[in-house]
Design a protein around this nucleic acid. Structure first.
Length: 690
DNA sequence: CTAGGGTTAG
């Protein structure tokens, strides 16, 4: 109003335009509508200039309806009118409409400028449509805007969002001037495509240039890259930068910091950032925090963070649910998993592909194969992630044929298996003894699915041959490999050599393993048990001495079992439980039953030269068996028993529990530190070998 | 009058 009074000689349109503009700036829709109504009431048709302002005002205030209505009724549209309409659509996330309007404009014979191109490229980025994006790029080149600051940044952003980093770089490198927005687009492109090192390198290059402003957008992307690299030190450095620039109160920055620290495993810093300011408690930061705890295997802390977030009034979203369900899977905490599933079903997140995939995995790890399949079957359009989960579950359960069938269905439905799918498939074949099928897939995956076999696939083949007792072939296979097997491969081989009494190859595997994982006591134990099974007590002693000398300690074995939502822990020969009498009685009863069913104690591998009866007794009182006996006397017979162990289940316990599942008619799931065993009716999902 | 970049998952 001041302007009107002080500059009464100005063109009335200019005055009106300025008034409308101020409504747009302050998002004052009511005042904007008033001005519009006033204009209409005066009977005059607004000029194109004024109408353009009105469209822009309506769009900025989120009132697309009136913007469109006005646009449709305009007798004269100029370049800016079209451009304003396109940007109105893209500002309000109507990217399809933005693109349609863009092509109408072109059809009307109006050449787009950098403004319209910018919005149109943004829309192509939204649809992640490389094809359309390339057309836009082409048009930008033709019209001479391709290296312009805004268009260039948009193109780089669009290419990286379409997954084509090469094209993004090409555009970016051609740009003569680059500001912080352009750099952010590029750095974020690297980050989103998993090229974290390149993101950091780009950031350094940018700093070296020295002229670019560092703002919150830029720092967010760099922090995300630090998270990906687990680069806590660099991240902390950037945190100081955030503080110096006074950007701590930015919610996105806070979330990025929490996520960075959580990914780097620095949970203390992550949780302190959450508590630092009023924006700290939000669904993104809490989900990052929870996921950090889950990844660090600190499930108690994860639950605590989840409960605190709920107390703060934060509604969990699909990220939160995924992480919490993942936590249940890692603990084989079936009860809590089911509760989360029930909660998810009350929300729309039940249709989220990440959530359903973690549910499939959780049920699988808790031994409920049918529930996994049910969750999978309820997915309307399974994605690659969904298929990978179900193939993985079949692998865990030793269902080789089902895994193969799932893979074939996956391919025929147009989903593309990746290297993880093939790891699962090969493991499934290995567990089910489908050696020929497994080998066929291994040798053909490169041709049929364009996946070069990696370390882990080679390791699966070693495992497959080893389990089948084809150790000579395993040796040849290793000799023909383009690289040395990884720890998993050598470990499988060592296990197989132990089972099949192959001393020399076992020694080789152990030697390699001790170099790869010198701290791993399991390797020493396995090797000594190979010697023990052959009665080479001198060698057993030598290994023990080696363990002493290199200060490798055998971890004490513990088992856990959840009964009525309470976790009970047992050690070997552990009789501290209040119900010890009943447990002991049950164990004795089980021994009698399984002996009748054909159980023969396997004391051959025990790494000490003890009297047989004592060895047997020691075996019978392994922690996992005590846990199973306890669960049998305290749980309703309908529920599967889930036991968790910190070490590997021993061969003898494996065969004993197999028979216990048969004589007691119970499903027993044992998760040890290496794998998953599902015992039912005298069978185990991991086959006959441990 | 019209345009660009940022945080969480298998």
């Amino acid at each position: 109003m001041k302007l009107v009074k002080s500059q009464p000689w100005r063109n009335p349109d200019t005055v009106l335009a300025q008034l409308i503009q101020s409504c747009a700036r302050t998002r004052n829709l009511d005042r904007g509508k008033q001005l519009h109504a006033h204009l209409v009431a005066s009977g005059a048709t607004p000029s194109t200039f004024v109408a353009n302002h009105l469209i822009s005002m309506y769009a900025k205030c989120g009132d697309l309806y009136h913007a469109i209505a006005l646009f449709d009724r305009m007798p004269q549209r100029n370049l800016v009118t079209w451009t304003a309409m396109i940007s109105s659509f893209s500002q309000n996330n109507k990217f399809g409409d933005a693109l349609r309007t863009f092509s109408s404009m072109c059809a009307a014979g109006i050449k787009p400028t950098q403004f319209a191109l910018s919005s149109a490229i943004q829309a192509s980025a939204f649809f992640a449509s490389l094809e359309f994006g390339k057309q836009m790029h082409c048009l930008s080149v033709k019209l001479g805007y391709d290296v312009e600051l805004f268009v260039g940044s948009n193109l780089a952003d669009m290419y990286s969002k379409c997954g084509s980093l090469v094209d993004a770089c090409r555009v970016f490198d051609e740009m003569p001037d680059k500001d912080e927005v352009a750099w952010t687009a590029m750095i974020d492109g690297y980050t989103k495509n998993g090229s974290f090192e390149e993101a950091i390198v780009a950031f350094r290059d940018m700093l070296r240039g020295g002229t670019v402003v560092i703002d919150q957008h830029l720092l967010c992307s760099v922090l995300s890259a630090c998270g990906g690299l687990k680069a806590g030190k660099l991240g902390r450095c950037l945190h100081s930068c955030v503080v110096k620039l006074g950007l701590e109160s930015d919610t996105f920055i806070g979330n990025a910091l929490v996520n960075m620290y959580a990914k780097a495993g620095d949970m203390e810093s992550a949780s302190s950032v959450v508590g630092m300011n009023s924006h700290g408690w939000n669904v993104v930061s809490c989900s990052s925090l929870i996921d950090g705890y889950v990844e660090m295997d600190q499930i108690e802390e994860a639950s605590r963070a989840y409960i605190s977030s709920r107390r703060q009034g934060i509604e969990p979203n699909e990220f939160t649910f995924s992480s919490m369900i993942k936590a249940c899977a890692s603990q084989a905490a079936l009860e809590q998993g089911i509760q989360l599933h029930a909660q998810v079903m009350k929300t729309s997140f039940v249709r989220d592909l990440f959530v359903s995939s973690t549910l499939i995995d959780m049920y699988g790890k808790c031994g409920l194969l049918n529930s996994s399949i049910q969750v999978f079957d309820e997915i309307q359009h399974p994605s690659d992630i969904s298929w990978n989960s179900i193939v993985g579950v079949f692998a865990q359960h030793g269902r080789g044929k089902e895994a193969v069938r799932a893979l074939n269905r996956m391919i025929s439905r147009g989903n593309k298996p990746n290297h993880i799918t093939f790891v699962s498939l090969l493991m499934a074949c290995s567990h089910a003894g489908l050696v020929e099928e497994g080998l066929e897939y291994f040798y053909s995956m490169n041709k049929t699915c364009d996946i070069e076999p990696r370390e882990e696939h080679y390791a699966c083949v070693i495992d497959m041959l080893g389990r089948a007792g084809r150790l000579e072939e395993a040796r040849e296979f290793i000799a023909g490999m383009p690289f040395e097997p990884n720890a998993y491969g050598w470990c499988s081989l060592l296990g197989a050599c132990r089972t099949h009494g192959e001393k020399e190859l076992g020694e080789l595997a152990a030697e390699k393993l001790m170099k790869l994982e010198p701290e791993n006591s399991g390797i020493h134990i396995l090797l000594s048990s190979i010697y023990a099974s052959m009665g080479q007590w001198e060698d057993v002693k030598a290994v023990r001495k080696l363990m002493r000398d290199s200060r490798v300690k055998k971890l004490p074995g513990f088992s856990w079992v959840d009964v009525n939502n309470k976790t009970h822990m047992f050690g070997a020969e552990d009789w501290s439980h209040p119900q010890k009498e009943e447990i002991y009685e049950k164990l004795e009863e089980l021994m009698v039953k399984i002996r009748k069913a054909g159980y023969v104690p396997f004391t051959g591998s025990m790494p000490c030269n003890l009297e047989e009866s004592l060895k047997e007794r020691l075996l019978h009182h392994h922690s996992e068996r005590i846990a199973v006996a306890f669960a049998l006397i305290s749980m309703p017979a309908t529920k599967p028993i889930i036991v968790k162990k910190n070490l590997r289940v021993c061969v003898d316990c494996h065969s004993a529990i197999k028979l216990i599942s048969k004589v007691e008619g119970r499903e027993i799931i044992v998760r040890d530190n290496a794998r998953f065993h599902h015992f039912a009716d005298g069978m185990c999902s991991c086959g006959d070998y441990w």
